[in-house]
Write a protein that binds this DNA or RNA. Structure first.
Lengths: 355, 355
DNA sequence: GAGATAAATTTACACGCGTAAATTATTAGA
DNA sequence: TCTAATAATTTACGCGTGTAAATTTATCTC
């Protein structure tokens, strides 16, 4: 807690443990309210006093009781981060970027994963509510999100959504411009070979999937092609498995309408690449290759697929950074904004060997 | 909070919000101490009273203030879970198993990742300490862990280690029997082809790597072979990258002493498989294959590598389950055990197409 | 060095709950 | 129906902090 404010990352506990602020006050020769001010904001006390407190902090082992602090504060300095599926590298990555940013702003990030379960998502929000966070960064599950519950939560606590937008919920939204990035991919694929078919899971949990399909259709039409949608059964978050099984089925049945497949996301593509490999289909560009496969997201493993995966990267950094700074400005303003703000960031094409 | 005890996952907030237990007491016609008992343990009040409280809970919107509770309790019901690298699927998986188990026991799991950074690990423990958790489940970083700090933490809070054992720290340890699982792999590989070389990163962050190397050496010797260690430069957690670059270097330089390579973990193997693919080396068993590659851990993507990866699976469930139940028994006992307990679980061979 | 300003101190109360002791009400068993 | 056991209530205090108002002290400017 303290390390956030006074910049100390390690203690030299040469002295004994101090029970409470009262005791620490007499030990350091200051009054408790002054110390209280210091711990809330070191800049709010005179530099000379600040140094005295820091010196005392080195001599004695004292940490303010976080429960007593938060019981009385109007607002805690906790920020909830709720993601739909932490085992998914995209969210693991965003969370990893978010944590140090929160800490740098003096806030305490609390990371929760819904593990793909809508009930779990609401449970996570409930448990956050009991912690009275200053705000919440939420990447909703999407299609299966219990919208009414989410809306009720949002009314009580400043909430910024990212990755997945939900109608009528949240003070702001930051995500990727699927239309732009899919456009980039379709454009590239059309330019360098056959126009791509679009491979997706029929019951995708996340509305981005729908946006990407629509973006694909529009991009194809603007290039003068008829869209070719391959919508395979499947739900949940086991994309690789669906890509492998259903993609393999399509390959073996020779049911692909094009020698180029654009997958709705990299995880589907990873599964499909594995299926193609097992079917002895050579994936890639140029002579001797029977299939081109592209994905979307620039998954951390996209570099290591066989062949390496051509894809579109999302601007994780911008999404994480802007979501947080928007939330912080809402928190600091102390009042909810009147205007809902949504911002989409461009992706960029990552050309590798699969297409 | 309450949902853990009274089993309600959703509220019907037909009534108004209740500020505190006092107010809720008068609304429900009971006394505050009785309600306090109920929230600590619903079984401690008479069934009829229990029903009255639950009914009131449905009528009014009341949640006990978690900060006020924890300020006064001797022990919070928080359990810290600290992992070295959450983006690593092994830890993501263990964490995913741990969370519902904690919740089912009435505890609140707090998940923190050290992101491969030893300072971050200690910071995580410090921030946990300020939360006064009942206990902590810790998978240490390993080699780079700041042992003295860790030891100081452990002395204050019940701590069970898993995955990676640290000399002289922790009330118990649960992990995989690397000797057994590596033995299984070496045995299988020797039986079905050339004896394997062992591919590892020289400065692995985790001591399991050393244990695996030693286990490999012993297994090879007991089979009558000389160990062949391929120790490549590299540190950190980017195993795939090291496997890809250094593995690729070995392959292109034809520096592999055997046509069979056992990788210290699956992530290295994933990188090496990608490198082999790019070099045009066919990996697998039987005719027309030039290289066999095996891994260790049964990474979630091991099914989807090209070819699918032969590996040894760790018993995630047992490790997670036993670690937690040991910690809970220490917490319930209210005193630290005299005897340190370490238990290793067997892995099992997962035969796929790469070896 | 005086006045203006800023900071620290004192005093006092509040927060929402745990918990112990003594008392009263309820239940179970015969 | 009575008694013993059990549960609930009342009363009272404590936990470690936030925070407001009034006062005193230190610092700065000229």
């Amino acid at each position: 807690m303290c390390s956030l404010h006074c910049g100390r990352t390690e203690r030299k506990m040469t002295g004994r443990k101090v029970r409470n602020m009262e005791e620490f006050a007499s030990l350091s020769g200051l009054s408790r309210p002054t110390l209280s001010k210091f711990f809330n904001n070191p800049q709010s006390v005179r530099p000379s006093t600040r140094e005295r407190i820091k010196a005392a902090l080195d001599r004695y082992d004292y940490t303010p009781n976080i429960y007593a602090i938060n019981q009385n504060r109007r607002l805690t300095r906790n920020i909830g981060i709720v993601v739909p599926y932490l085992a998914d590298p995209f969210f693991a990555e965003v969370a990893r970027k978010l944590e140090p940013l929160c800490a740098a702003s003096g806030f305490n990030p609390i990371l929760l994963s819904s593990h793909g379960d809508p009930d779990r998502e609401i449970e996570n929000l409930d448990s956050l509510r009991s912690i009275k966070p200053a705000g919440v960064l939420l990447a909703p599950l999407g299609r299966r999100t219990r919208q009414a519950d989410l809306e009720a939560f949002w009314k009580g606590i400043p909430t910024v959504l990212f990755d997945c937008e939900i109608e009528g919920v949240g003070d702001a939204f930051f995500g990727s411009d699927n239309s732009q990035s899919i456009g980039l991919l379709v454009d590239y694929l059309c330019r360098t070979g056959e126009a791509p078919a679009f491979f997706e899971m029929a019951n995708a949990p996340n509305p981005n999937a729908n946006k990407r399909r629509v973006a694909y259709e529009e991009a194809m039409q603007s290039q003068g092609y008829d869209p070719m949608i391959l919508s395979v059964p499947g739900d949940g978050w086991e994309f690789e498995k669906v890509g492998f099984e259903e993609g393999g089925r399509l390959i073996r049945a020779r049911a692909l309408p094009s020698d180029t497949v654009l997958c709705s996301n990299d995880r589907l593509a990873i599964g499909m690449l594995a299926a193609a490999y097992e079917s002895g289909i050579r994936v890639g560009i140029g002579e001797g290759h029977a299939l081109r496969v592209a994905g979307h997201d620039d998954h951390p493993y996209a570099r290591f697929t066989c062949p390496s995966l051509t894809t579109a990267s999302q601007d994780y950094g911008a999404i994480a950074g802007q979501s947080l700074s928007r939330l912080l400005s809402i928190i600091e303003a102390g009042s909810r904004p009147d205007d809902y703000k949504a911002e989409l960031f461009d992706g960029s094409l990552v050309m590798r060997n699969s297409a």
